[in-house]
Design a binder for these strands. Structure first.
Lengths: 247, 247
DNA sequence: GCGATTCTTCCGCAGAGCGGAAGCGATGTC
DNA sequence: GACATCGCTTCCGCTCTGCGGAAGAATCGC
């Protein structure tokens, strides 16, 4: 294992659930000898990738946050999409999420939540399997067929009794998404909610998806036009002056 | 120079102005031999810290963005402050910013901008000298006196004819901030605007500051109560259940 | 088609990084 | 107050890893 990999391993030790770690904890998680960890962490802290809390424990530093903020698929996408997400949020008063595909999972880039909206699991920066969510279906429907094969070859994770786990049935859903342009996921993550998603494109193809999360008892099709309009708006913003996200 | 430092150097080559770089560009910026750069970049890309665009160029990857999102002083702070920032923004319809101190500079963590508000330089993730901005004054006024000495020992950068560059005068301003609780910076960054800032505390002391950016012709004192109320709200949220940001 | 430019692969040498050992300092226990 | 425990830091000699020159492949521009 190379030094670079060790360094990245140290960064990877920090998670949503454990954003603050002591030296020993980092050493244990990475299975690197304490001395090695000590040296690496020291270098990371000197640069600003990690910071020391008063307690002596380490947390992810501001400098790394700054660099992370340069990820075109993270903040770049978020910045351009924000106005449209806000409009959709304002009009409907429901949770709105924006996500991208990374391997077989979706990564949430932004979430706008209302006080009075249904509860929701995702958080900006968190991951979910691509199969069960509105955004996930929208992204998979337009993804490389080879990726879809790979995803469906593995057993699909179940969240509720309503979660669709049959590969053939999922393929049918994906076809429907391609036909109608919207992805509807009913009670697949939580029984109280369902989501209506749509893909977002830049000049190169589908790069993200947004969805609205609404109560299970409402009619999802009623939200389709608004979701589609927002998705188109973002797509237009991405195809605009500065071209695609990648450049 | 250690490998870890080299790795971080590569990450540091990506900036706001140049978020997408080719291998050769990275090599030139870091002054690392092309072969070395090639190897490091390869390892970073394998982990997900960097991604390859279709063009073959590299950009900051989603995985690094995720880890960066764990920075308590970045996203953690932002999440808890957001509702209060939104309220302030909604009520006043002016730009609202949230920032933390990093060395002698302020780093903007969030910015809410209105279509009809005055223009603004900052962007989430960008840096500014601490001396001339509303947030900067609010943070410096409650910072370690030794830091203030260090900041004022260096020549202060001038943005407009109204920028205060005299150390003694800046000290007087800081005193006033401590006395009144609000920091007012008039036309110091741009002649069309001024800002009203206030410090945000957690259990350990001042950790951030927010400010509102309003047109130069308005009366800044009129905004002080609203700004203070928002700052207090965020402070309360930070001192709450889960304690300080650091933990 | 041909030179210029950028990217990738290969490999032998050298010194950077590794990690065991030992010492330090804080906290908890009897 | 003495002792044990646990976590952090410093030190240093051996070894294996990462270094980067060279050469070749791929792509671009004229």
């Amino acid at each position: 294992m190379s030094v670079a990999a060790r360094v990245l391993d140290v960064l990877g030790a920090f998670t949503d659930a454990t954003p603050v770690l002591t030296l020993t904890e980092i050493s244990r998680r990475t299975r690197l000898p304490l001395t090695t960890t000590h040296r690496l962490v020291g270098e990371l802290a000197a640069w600003g990738a990690l910071e020391r809390a008063e307690s002596g424990a380490y947390r992810v530093g501001l400098r790394l946050w700054e660099v992370g903020s340069l990820a075109p698929r993270g903040v770049g996408l978020r910045e351009r999409a924000m106005p449209y997400l806000e409009d959709l949020h304002e009009v409907t008063r429901h949770n709105v999420v924006l996500a991208v595909l990374d391997g077989a999972e979706v990564v949430y880039v932004e979430r706008l939540s209302a006080h009075d909206a249904v509860s929701i699991r995702s958080r900006a920066g968190s991951r979910m399997p691509a199969t069960a969510t509105g955004v996930g279906l929208a992204l998979l429907a337009h993804a490389d067929p080879e990726l879809v094969d790979r995803v469906l070859a593995a057993p699909v994770r179940r969240f509720t009794p309503a979660t669709v786990v049959d590969p053939a049935e999922i393929r049918r859903l994906l076809g429907e998404v391609r036909r109608t342009g919207v992805a509807i996921s009913v009670q697949q993550i939580e029984l109280v909610s369902q989501s209506v998603g749509a893909p977002v494109r830049d000049a190169t193809g589908v790069v993200a998806a947004l969805s609205i999360v609404v109560p299970a008892e409402s009619n999802p099709h009623a939200y389709a036009p608004a979701v589609l309009a927002a998705a188109r708006g973002i797509s237009r913003a991405l195809t605009g002056v500065n071209g695609a996200l990648a450049r």
